[in-house]
């Protein structure tokens, strides 16, 4: 395996981690928007408390992804960001609005008008951002962005307003909804748990339907992606992902609450993994391979050397964080205040 391929693998893992952790976080906002029924307020409070301690960390995966791209694949970073600047700017608006709104609501005075308005901003931004990221993923994969060298030839709206990209936007949203609801099943009790269980089942069925439908849509609109469907590895990854998804559904149906979150996370990682395999050898489909986009070898190798050293600090720290807060968060006392 070349260092460039290894670095591309690191980027893919960063996408996976962001999809799983950031996705659950966005999903929390989406369900906050869709909170309904007699336990509307409890649902929102439970979601907020679950997100609280980890939301910042969840989004650092995005920074890690962006940094990996521009250190190791500067040409791809430049081309993708230039070509897809409109949806990426929109995602950025969502990220800023969401982060600021959550902070105001969470650390500020809960009864204030500011806190109530913040909830609205937070919820809508939680829908906007994963949807636009889905559009970007779809556009990167769809093969409709024209590039010559590192100059973008196609227009500002190329690639991301097409059926396949919109499908990916929808999948992005459903991933978040599915993760958040599945995670909440293990973190709540009683009636509230039933609420989230029903939501998780609905989201998992919708996600299954959308990912299945994405294949004919790709055949029609995204040759670059569809042409990989005869690759045994891609088909294998998709098969495994489907089985994981079904296992997750079974865990939810049979009320195996502790099994639901890891199975949901594995399903989402599988979706991202299958997508990543279907991208090879491209970072931007039909335009830029990971080898062509890579920085000089020494930079790639230095990055790969720094990675495990950083991980040596990060992994125990992350473990400490999730270990400290995974227990009894919701039975515990008031958080943050």
């Amino acid at each position: 395996m070349s260092p460039e391929l290894a670095a591309a693998g690191v980027a893919l893992v960063a996408v996976m981690m962001y999809a799983v952790f950031g996705g659950a976080d966005f999903g929390g906002g989406a369900w906050s928007l869709l909170a309904s029924g007699p336990r509307k307020a409890e649902q929102r409070l439970a979601l907020e408390k679950a997100i609280g301690p980890v939301w910042e960390t969840n989004h650092v995966w995005l920074i890690l992804l962006v940094v990996t791209l521009f250190v190791v694949f500067p040409a791809a970073y430049a081309v993708i960001f230039e070509a897809l600047y409109v949806p990426l700017f929109l995602a950025l608006v969502g990220i800023v609005a969401r982060g600021a709104a959550f902070a105001f609501r969470h650390y500020g005075n809960r009864e204030s008008r500011l806190a109530r308005q913040s909830l609205q901003w937070f919820s809508w931004a939680s829908v906007l951002t994963p949807f636009t990221f889905g559009l970007v993923i779809g556009a990167v994969t769809g093969g409709h962005i024209e590039v010559e060298g590192t100059t973008v030839l196609s227009g500002a709206f190329a690639g991301w307003l097409r059926p396949f990209a919109l499908m990916c936007g929808l999948i992005g949203l459903l991933i978040c909804a599915f993760l958040a609801a599945s995670f909440m099943v293990a973190r709540t009790e009683g009636e509230l748990r039933e609420d989230f269980r029903r939501r998780a089942i609905a989201a998992s069925l919708a996600l299954g339907a959308a990912t299945t439908a994405a294949i004919p849509v790709a055949a029609w609109d995204a040759d670059a992606f569809a042409s990989h469907l005869d690759d045994a590895r891609v088909v294998g990854a998709m098969g495994v992902t489907a089985l994981l998804g079904l296992a997750g559904l079974w865990a939810l149906r049979t009320r195996r609450y502790r099994l639901a979150p890891p199975l949901a996370a594995a399903t989402v990682a599988g979706v991202v993994g299958a997508w990543g395999l279907a991208q090879e050898p491209y970072l931007l489909a039909n335009a830029l391979t990971y080898e062509a986009a890579a920085a000089e070898r020494i930079t790639v190798v230095s990055f790969l050397v720094a990675l495990p050293i950083g991980a040596l600090i990060l992994i125990p720290s992350l473990w400490l964080l999730y270990w400290t807060f995974s227990r009894d968060t919701l039975r515990g006392e008031e958080v943050a205040h």
Binding site: V60, I63, L64, V67, T68, F70, V71, V72, P74, A75, Y77, A78, V79, F81, T150, A295, E296, T299, S302, F303, A306, G310, I313, L314
Partner: peptide, 17 residues
């Protein structure tokens, strides 16, 4: 960034950590 990313990306990635 296309010009500089590969040269000066190192402190950025360490900053990320």
């Amino acid at each position: 960034m296309e010009y500089a990313g590969g040269i000066i990306g190192m402190p950025f990635s360490l900053e990320g950590f």
